Amino acid sequence: MELTFQTAAPTERLYSARQSMQIEGQTGCIGHLRADMGEDGKGFFKTWKGHRENLSTEEFQQEFESVLNALVGDEQYGGFLKSRDAMRDFCQECPESSFNDGFAFGFRADTAQYAYLIRLQPYKGEENLFIYCYRRDWLDSHMKQAEKGIRFITPHYEEKFRIADGDSVRIRCQDGRVLDRVCRYIDDCHVEVGTGWDNLYHICQFAEMMERNGNSVIPLRNSLPLICYGKVPEKRAIVMFERGFDGYRSASYVTKGRTSQKLVDELNSEMGVSKAQAAAMLAGATQGWATPAADPKNYDEQGRPIKPRNQDRGDAR
Score class of each variant (00 low, 15 high):
Thr4Asp: 08
Phe5Asp: 07
Gln6Glu: 14
Gln6Arg: 15
Glu12Pro: 01
Glu12Arg: 02
Arg13Ile: 03
Leu14Cys: 00
Tyr15Asp: 14
Ser16Ile: 09
Arg18Gly: 06
Gln19Pro: 04
Met21Asp: 15
Gln22Pro: 01
Gly25Arg: 08
Thr27Ala: 07
His32Phe: 10
Arg34Lys: 12
Asp36Thr: 00
Met37Leu: 11
Met37Glu: 13
Glu39Leu: 12
Glu39Arg: 11
Lys42Tyr: 06
Phe44Cys: 07
Phe45His: 12
Phe45Trp: 07
Lys46Cys: 11
Lys49Gln: 12
Glu53Phe: 04
Glu58Gly: 11
Phe60Thr: 02
Glu63Trp: 01
Phe64Asp: 03
Glu65Ala: 13
Leu71Ile: 04
Leu71Phe: 13
Gly78Met: 03
Lys82Met: 13
Arg84Phe: 00
Ala86Glu: 13
Phe90Lys: 02
Cys91Phe: 03
Cys94Asn: 15
Cys94Lys: 14
Glu96Gln: 12
Phe99Leu: 11
Phe107Pro: 00
Ala109Val: 02
Asp110Thr: 09
Asp110Lys: 10
Thr111His: 12
Gln113Ile: 00
Asn128Cys: 09
Leu129Phe: 15
Ile131Ser: 01
Tyr134Leu: 07
Tyr134Asp: 02
Trp138Asn: 10
Lys148Ala: 12
Phe152Ser: 09
Phe152Thr: 02
Lys160Arg: 14
Phe161Ala: 00
Gly166Met: 09
Val169Ile: 14
Ile171His: 06
Arg172Asn: 10
Gln174Arg: 11
Arg181Lys: 14
Ile186Trp: 05
Asp187Val: 00
His190Ile: 02
Val193Cys: 04
Asn199Cys: 15
Asn199Pro: 02
Leu200Thr: 01
Tyr201Thr: 01
His202Val: 01
His202Ile: 06
Ile203Lys: 03
Ile203Ala: 01
Phe206Gly: 01
Met209Lys: 14
Arg212Tyr: 15
Leu220Ser: 10
Leu226Gly: 07
Lys231Gln: 05
Pro233Lys: 03
Glu234Gln: 15
Arg236Lys: 07
Ala237Trp: 07
Met240Ala: 08
Glu242Leu: 11
Gly244Ala: 05
Asp246His: 07
Ser250His: 15
Ser250Glu: 15
Thr255Met: 09
Gly257Ala: 02
Gly257Cys: 02
Ser260Ala: 08
Leu263Cys: 04
Lys275Asp: 06
Gln277Arg: 04
Ala278Gln: 14
Ala278Glu: 12
Ala280Glu: 07
Ala280Cys: 01
Leu282Gln: 12
Ala283His: 09
Asp295His: 02
Asp295Lys: 01
Pro296Asp: 05
Arg304Met: 10
Pro305Trp: 10
Ile306Ala: 02
Ile306Val: 03
Arg313Asn: 03
Asp315Met: 08
